[in-house]
Design a protein around this nucleic acid. Structure first.
Lengths: 252, 252
DNA sequence: ACAGTTGTCCCGCTATGCGGAATAGTCCTA
DNA sequence: TAGGACTATTCCGCATAGCGGGACAACTGT
């Protein structure tokens, strides 16, 4: 292992990261095979994490995430410095549009939604919070790519094989570049049935005091409802992402 | 260290758990002093967790929670088996009452809110999710205690020094026991300005197929709004916690 | 410019963590 | 009901990973 790193802690982190919304529960043998570690090593790590309340073991012997994760998740957005700046703008945007408002950050080729304010129409829970999605087919993701620093954007776009999520998803890098240029010119992005049929989202960048794009704010909802007030939603997203940027010290 | 546990993983878990909503950022020296570990040990753990994206280091050298936490938090409610059973009942309760609906589980002498559906009136974010609160002064907490298995309840109540959060908080165990008996008789609990002045919550138990109380469902809001429709809210909370229990196989 | 404090890195030492194998427990099927 | 398949758990010998003290570079405040 490289200098100054702890291999058993790194393995424990790999164990923790195996628990996802799509695979929330693991057995010892299954996880050992998945991670290519020995069963006794995995068992020791799991037992230690259960003692620490990071994980818990169920009656069927399988392991899942423990309550300590809720406390850690509660620490996450607070320290990003965005939280307080977002409260009023997101509320105003939600009240103006009546739709779900989210703020996402770029993580490699994905967007992670770190804040969210639900539409009254929404059936979904905050269990979906922290959800990540592909950057190339979401409003937030495309806004983050469009307004990213060029070296970062070039690094992300290089050799990227874009997965198709619907028939409308952009799947070629040249086409995506063209659309990102359009987004930069008009100041907002739009996802039309690209991540999910029937869903449209509109997003704009949030900038910090140095002018760097650190997040994107978006409104998302069923195509009919968004399209019925498309211009109003677009204007509101642009306005309120600017308000947020101002609160973070952006003066451009 | 006890048999079959990994002290470096246990220390890493202690490091992770130091990051909370109220203390989201730590320096190496500060954290080493707090945990009574050496600076080099803490530095190695932090660096390893940064490599794993569990934590991140900011430009000022301090450390905070990383994006991998969002993915872990997303795994948490899904594996509790509650999630799907809760979707429609919580939505109906929110729509009937117009107020925030939460579901909590007991963790020692606290309640951890594992699901939440916000009122359209709410200015708060899901960053508050996973929030924990004292069990003795919340609707959910008192419902969980009232309907807990007697051995568990006795264990929690024994030698408990109840902190006062407002002038209305119950601070003696005998008084709390009396109120828990009342809650069992009438089937729901109520927090009136006990956790926070101005806030009222009403809660009822969620039971699984074996009849065990595994969670509580609550509605919370400003006292004026809840009291204006008190009977309707109470009836709705009881009805929809029963609907949820039925979906989990409870037949009592 | 200097003192105080921090984060990072190095090194010798030893206790921790590893993995293979054995064992106990559970579940399913004939 | 018994046996096979598969799991989680435990043990033990070995060796290296992780420890902590201390040095050093960088940063901050006066």
């Amino acid at each position: 292992m490289s200098n100054n790193r702890l291999s058993s802690v790194a393995n424990a982190a790999r164990v923790l990261k195996a628990f996802t919304a799509s695979h929330p529960s693991w057995g010892v043998t299954e996880l050992a095979n998945h991670l290519e570690l020995s069963k006794s090593s995995v068992h020791r790590i799991l037992s230690t994490l259960v003692d620490s309340a990071m994980l818990e073991q169920h009656q069927n012997g399988r392991y899942g995430v423990g309550l300590a994760m809720f406390d850690l998740a509660a620490a996450a957005p607070t320290q990003r410095g965005l939280h307080e700046a977002l409260l009023l703008p997101m509320t105003e945007l939600r009240n103006r549009t009546g739709e779900t408002v989210q703020v996402g950050v770029l993580d490699g080729r994905q967007v992670v939604y770190v804040e969210r304010l639900d539409s009254p129409h929404t059936l979904r829970f905050f269990a979906d919070m922290g959800r990540r999605n592909d950057a190339h087919c979401t409003g937030s993701g495309k806004a983050l790519l469009a307004f990213a620093a060029p070296p970062l954007r070039d690094r992300v776009l290089k050799s990227w094989v874009l997965p198709a999520r619907t028939a409308h998803t952009i799947t070629s890098v040249p086409e995506l570049k063209k659309q990102l240029a359009l987004i930069r010119r008009r100041g907002y992005s739009e996802n039309r049935h690209e991540s999910e049929i029937g869903i449209v989202s509109i997003a704009a960048p949030i900038r910090d005091a140095s002018g760097m794009t650190i997040a994107a704010m978006s409104v998302a909802g069923p195509a009919e409802r968004i399209d019925a007030q498309h211009q109003a939603v677009t204007d509101a997203v642009i306005a309120l992402s600017r308000v947020t940027s101002s609160r973070l010290g952006y003066t451009g």
